[in-house]
């Protein structure tokens, strides 16, 4: 079976007064119908990697790759019209902050229904029915009431679940989730992850889960890529993340406080310049 997504030698750079800054430097991976985690700290290039797949980069970014294909479509050479047909309907993107992702002057339910109508090609009545069902699926208790609310009337956690509902209602084949649960309380986070888990297991959706939370990624994903300074420094089975060998991954894991340990001092990371290339 051919992979859903294939990326080879992906590079993103930005012009600066002192020459180009390479934010993503030769990332390669392929994705099947699985949960792939990408972890790293701020500036590691993990979010840009996710956005490159949708070709949603800032206008001044230069993108190149030896290969960037989604289900047989070459995303690098695809015309805008093809990309627009993929975005939202076949490849969904969930961002961290619902404040900037929801339309502030449109009822949240209408936004979800719009996604179902445009990408799913269903009637207005069916779109409304699907939007309500999806609100219920993301554990919103009173979907009818929430349907009619505006974004400023919902809490951050609820806004995030609405975003997720909007992205899932067209039933995409690939979902790129960039820190989708970082703003959520841990109990809500668990429930949202269970929804994503179901979609991968039942519908065979591919999921790219971008996060800074190593413990969460190792417990939720199948496979993990660890990024540092624009490169993948280590790839592991998620369950086996504790056995990581790269000093950066090991350093990150050790610097996490844990409920069951009594270390007074946490080891801090001393960054080795060689990690940029090693």
């Amino acid at each position: 079976m051919t992979p859903l997504l294939e990326i080879e030698d992906l590079r993103v750079s930005f012009p600066t007064p002192t020459g180009p800054f390479d934010a993503v430097r030769g990332v390669s991976f392929s994705l099947g119908r699985e949960r792939l985690g990408i972890v790293g700290e701020s500036g590691s290039g993990k979010s840009l990697t996710g956005r490159s797949i949708l070709r949603l980069l800032p206008a001044n970014a230069a993108l190149s790759a030896r290969r960037l294909t989604f289900d047989g479509t070459d995303l690098l050479s695809a015309p805008t019209r093809t990309l627009r047909a993929l975005r939202g309907s076949r490849i969904g993107l969930v961002l961290q902050d619902p404040k900037y992702s929801l339309n502030p002057v449109m009822r949240v339910g209408e936004q979800i229904a719009e996604a179902a109508r445009i990408h799913g090609g269903v009637s207005a009545a069916e779109a409304r029915r699907r939007a309500l069902a999806m609100l219920e699926a993301v554990r919103i208790r009173d979907p009818e009431r929430v349907f009619g609310l505006y974004p400023h009337e919902v809490s951050g956690g609820m806004g995030q679940r609405i975003m997720i509902a909007m992205m899932l209602v067209p039933e995409p084949d690939l979902l790129i989730a960039d820190e989708p649960t970082s703003a959520l309380d841990v109990t809500v986070q668990m429930q949202v992850l269970a929804i994503l888990d179901d979609l991968v297991a039942r519908r065979g959706m591919g999921l790219i889960f971008i996060s800074h939370d190593l413990d969460l990624v190792s417990s939720f994903c199948d496979r993990v890529l660890v990024m540092y300074a624009g490169r993948v420094v280590e790839e592991r089975n998620a369950r086996d993340l504790a056995g990581a060998t790269h000093p950066y991954t090991r350093g990150l894991l050790q610097s996490l406080p844990r409920i069951d340990d009594e270390r007074a001092e946490l080891p801090t990371l001393s960054r080795d310049p060689a990690w940029r290339d090693g």
Binding site: V186, T187, M190, Q191, D197, D215, S219, F220
Partner: peptide, 20 residues
């Protein structure tokens, strides 16, 4: 107990047992 369990990472069974 629920908060503690949810803090320990993702677990399908724990997620299903969450109560409000």
């Amino acid at each position: 107990r629920q908060l503690l369990l949810a803090s320990l990472g993702y677990d399908r069974a724990v997620a299903a047992s969450m109560v409000s």
